[in-house]
Nucleic acid binder design. Structure first.
Length: 478
RNA sequence: CGGGGUGUAGCUCAGCCUGGUAGAGUGCUUGGUUUGGGACCAAGAUGUCGAAGGUUCGAAUCCUUUCGCCCCGACCA
C-alpha cells in the first residue's frame, strides 16, 4: 500500500520524521544556521499548546513577566556550575554598530562593547538579579514568575523541533523562604507538566528525578519528563529544577524573616519548550503523516465537499451549513471549498493530521447525512451518519479520539519498557536489537561496566523511577 | 567540534570522471476530459548549477578557499 510519507517509520525513522514535517507544512530550515522557521500551521499548534500551558501555569499562582534577551557576561559568571554547563554553547554580542568597510557591512571595530552580552540560553541569572531586588521581606515570598520567550544555545547538531539553536519556551522561576517549599514546588510543577502532557498532548510521560550525572548545572534536584518515541528512543520533554540556594547565594536573594534575621531564599526553575512539538509529532504520527490529538489540532474537523460541476454550488452551501453547525459548538472547523481535486484535499488534510474528516457529496446531501473518518484509525473507521445530532456526535468523537490516542501511547509505553536484572542482561538485549527503555537497579549503573555499555550502545540514564527511586530507566535518546 | 556524504528548476535528482554555454520526473500555469483514498491528454513558464577566487579561448564539470544541509560521534530543552 502506498503511504503518504516515504520512507516509512520502519524503513528510516529519522528521515520519516523530517519528511513528516515538510509534508504537514509545520516548519522549514531557515537561512540561519541551526534555526528553523515555524510555519503558520505549525505555529497554530504551538499557540494551542502554549495557551493551555499558560492557563495552567497561571492557575498555579504564577505571574508572567518579561526579561531581557541579553545577559551581562558577568551575571553568568556568578554561578560556577551553571557557567560550566552552558559556556560551550553561548552566542555572544560584542558590538553595537555596523559600518561599511570595503563595501561590506561589518561590526564597527570602534563599537566594541567593553563588556559583551550573552544571548540568553536560559534566564536564571538575570531573573535572579531582579529577584534579589524584589525580595526584601518574608512577605514578598513566595514570588512566582514565568516568561514565554526565545532562547539560544549554539547547538552542534540541530534537528527540527528536537534541538534547534534558537527555540521558544516558557521558563518559570519561583522563590521561596524555605527548602521544603522549594522542594514541593519543583515536584508540583513536574506534576503539572505530567498532567498537561497526558490531558492535552495525549502522551503519558515517564517521570522521575535525573540522576546526579544528568542533572541541570546548578540544581540540587532535576525532575524530568521523558517521552518514548515510536523507535524506542527517549526525548526529554520538560524539566523542573530545585535549585536550592545556589542561585539565591550567587545573586544575594535574601529576605528578613519573621524573626528579624536576614535569610537566604530557595529557588526553583521549570521549563517546557517547542521540543514538546517534536515529541507530539513523533509519538502520534504514522506513515501517512501527522496525527494530532483534537486538543491541539488547529482544525479539529475538515469538511470536504465532493463536488461535481452540476452540483458545486448547492454542495458547497451544504458543506458550509455542516461547518456552521459544528462551529456553533466551538469545534474548530475548516470547510475546504478550495479549487483542488477532492482526492488531493483529503491527502492534504490527512498529512496534516486533522482528527476528523467529513466528506459530503450528493449522496450525503440527499440523505441529510455526512461521511466521517477518524484520522487516528484511518479508512476503516469511515461511516455515514445523520446530521441531526452532528455537533454532539462529533464532539463526543473528538473526546474519544483524544482518549484513544492516550490509551494507545500508554499501551505502547508498557511494551517499550523492559525490566532487566543486571548489566549482562541489558547488554544481551541491546545486542539482540531490543529497543525502548530498560529499567534496572540504579546501583548497577554505578559499576564501571555500565560506562562501557553506555559507550557501546549509545544509551544513557534517563531518570529514576518515581515509584521506586532505587530503579533507573536507561535508553537511547534524541 | 571530529569522521563520512552532499549542494544543479518549488521538490527529488541526472549531467561532472573525459571542460564546449542546462536536463528528467514531480510540482506549477492554461485549455479540455475527469472527480467518493493521490486522474488523463495537450500546450506553457521556471535556473546567477551554494558562494568567492583561480586555471582556460571557454567551467555545473578541473584546482583552492568558504558556507549550508544530511548521517555517525561528543554536548544538550
Amino acid at each position: 500500500m502506498k503511504t503518504a510519507i516515504t520512507p516509512t517509520r520502519a524503513e528510516n525513522f529519522s528521515e520519516w520524521y523530517q519528511n513528516l514535517i515538510v509534508a504537514a507544512d509545520l516548519a522549514e530550515n531557515s537561512p540561519v544556521r541551526g534555526c528553523m522557521t515555524i510555519k503558520p500551521y505549525g505555529w497554530a499548534i504551538w499557540e494551542l499548546m502554549r495557551d493551555e500551558m499558560d492557563k495552567r501555569i497561571k492557575a498555579s499562582g504564577v505571574q508572567n513577566a518579561n526579561f531581557p534577551l541579553l545577559i551581562p557576561i558577568d551575571f553568568f559568571n556568578k554561578e560556577a556550575e551553571h557557567v560550566a554547563g552552558f559556556a560551550k554553547e553561548c552566542a555572544v554580542v560584542t558590538h553595537h554598530r555596523l559600518k561599511m568597510i570595503d563595501g561590506q557591512l561589518q561590526p564597527d571595530p570602534d563599537s566594541k562593547l567593553t563588556e559583551p552580552y550573552i544571548i540568553r540560553p536560559t534566564s536564571e541569572t538575570i531573573i535572579g538579579d531582579a529577584m534579589a531586588r524584589w525580595v526584601q521581606s518574608y512577605r514578598d515570598l513566595p514570588l512566582k514568575l514565568n516568561q514565554w520567550v526565545n532562547v539560544m544555545r549554539w547547538e552542534m547538531r540541530p534537528r527540527m523541533f528536537l534541538r534547534t539553536s534558537e527555540f521558544n519556551w516558557q521558563e518559570g522561576h519561583n522563590v521561596f523562604a524555605t527548602a521544603q517549599e522549594a522542594h514541593e514546588d519543583a515536584r508540583k510543577m513536574h506534576k503539572i507538566y505530567g498532567d498537561y502532557m497526558r490531558d492535552v498532548l495525549a502522551i503519558e510521560s515517564i517521570m522521575g528525578e535525573k540522576t546526579p550525572e544528568e542533572r541541570f548545572a546548578g540544581a540540587d534536584h532535576t525532575y524530568t519528563l521523558e517521552h518514548i518515541m515510536q523507535d524506542g528512543k527517549a526525548l526529554q520533554a520538560g524539566t523542573s529544577h530545585n535549585l536550592g540556594q545556589h542561585f539565591a547565594k550567587s545573586f544575594n536573594i535574601q529576605f528578613l524573616g519573621t524573626s528579624g534575621k536576614l535569610e537566604t531564599a530557595y529557588t526553583t526553575s521549570w521549563g517546557t519548550t517547542t521540543r514538546m512539538m517534536g515529541s507530539l509529532f513523533m509519538v502520534h504520527s504514522d506513515d501517512d503523516g501527522l496525527v494530532l490529538p483534537p486538543f491541539v489540532a488547529p482544525y479539529q474537523v475538515v469538511v470536504i465537499p465532493i463536488v461535481r460541476e452540476e452540483n458545486q454550488d448547492t454542495l458547497n452551501t451544504y458543506a458550509e451549513k455542516v461547518g456552521e453547525q459544528l462551529r456553533e459548538k466551538g469545534i474548530r472547523v475548516l470547510v475546504d471549498t478550495s479549487d483542488m481535486r477532492s482526492a488531493d484535499k483529503m491527502w492534504k488534510w490527512i498529512k496534516r493530521g486533522v482528527p476528523i474528516r467529513i466528506e459530503v457529496g450528493s449522496r450525503e446531501m440527499d440523505n441529510q447525512a455526512v461521511t466521517v473518518t477518524r484520522r487516528d484509525l484511518g479508512k476503516s473507521s469511515q461511516k455515514t451518519i445523520d446530521i441531526k445530532n452532528l455537533s454532539d456526535d462529533i464532539q463526543e468523537m473528538l473526546q474519544t479520539i483524544q482518549n484513544d490516542m492516550l490509551e494507545k501511547v500508554k499501551k505502547r509505553n508498557l511494551e517499550m519498557i523492559t525490566n532487566v536484572s543486571g548489566l549482562d542482561e541489558l547488554d544481551n538485549m541491546l545486542n539482540d536489537g531490543k529497543i525502548g527503555f530498560f529499567r534496572l537497579k540504579y546501583e548497577h549503573t554505578l559499576d564501571s561496566k555500565f560506562d562501557d555499555l553506555m559507550e557501546k550502545h549509545k544509551i544513557s540514564r534517563r531518570c529514576l523511577d518515581d515509584n521506586d527511586p532505587n530503579y533507573v530507566f536507561v535508553a537511547k535518546s534524541y
